[in-house]
């Protein structure tokens, strides 16, 4: 049995706490500290605000990429080039990206940020997509890139709970990549490490 989880559930309370600490309340505390002649304390409060901004910025970049992936899978699924059961896989993976996007947007709001929205138009190399394997190869490239993107984001999160949640998404992207490679007849897990 597969148990569906919310990787960001640890943020249910923590997010609100960090939000309150990182915005108005923090700035007030920093101002008070400055007025009290305690610049070091003020700087500390300011850095919490910076941490929050950093995390929201990283989450928004990830959200932008997830929204593009949703659109890319829509193009692939609607191309008429995918045959069952590969078509079902594409729709399933698109559903995962929708879940990622929803939870990222919710977390951004929880942290006091504004989630980016899907663009009206995305550009994809559709001229080069002539066969099912072309579509699979394109999708595999996006998923492989997503693994690296989350891998590169994890160490930058100031909140450890966010790093953990991003790693949970990373695992899903890696599974997508492996399955797509398998469908292409390639070694699904070509290396022991990802970078």
């Amino acid at each position: 049995m597969i148990v569906r989880i919310n990787p960001f559930s640890a943020l249910q309370d923590l997010g609100r706490r960090r939000f309150l600490a990182g915005t108005g309340a923090t700035l007030s505390a920093a101002a008070v500290a400055l007025m009290a002649g305690r610049p070091a304390l003020a700087a500390g409060q300011g850095s919490k605000h910076d941490d929050l901004e950093t995390d929201v910025r990283i989450l928004n970049t990830a959200l932008g990429a997830e929204l593009e992936a949703i659109a890319a899978y829509a193009v692939g699924a609607g191309s008429g080039l995918l045959q069952k059961p590969v078509l079902d896989l594409a729709v399933q993976f698109q559903g995962h990206h929708k879940e990622h996007a929803a939870v990222l947007a919710k977390t951004i709001r929880k942290l006091g940020g504004t989630p980016v929205e899907a663009r009206e138009h995305y550009q994809f190399p559709t001229d080069g997509l002539k066969t099912q394997n072309d579509v699979l190869g394109f999708a595999a490239g996006l998923e492989r890139g997503a693994v690296s993107a989350y891998l590169g984001a994890v160490p930058l999160f100031r909140g450890r709970e966010l790093a953990s949640a991003a790693a949970s998404i990373l695992g899903d992207e890696a599974m997508h990549w492996a399955i797509l490679r398998q469908a292409l007849g390639q070694d699904p897990v070509p290396t022991a490490f990802m970078s």
């Binding site: 990429a65 996006l142 693994v147």
Partner: peptide, 15 residues
């Protein structure tokens, strides 16, 4: 460059 392809492409803007 495969690592960059969640967000970048050569010929068109993405994330």
């Amino acid at each position: 460059y495969a690592r960059c392809q969640a967000c970048h492409a050569l010929g068109y803007d993405r994330t």
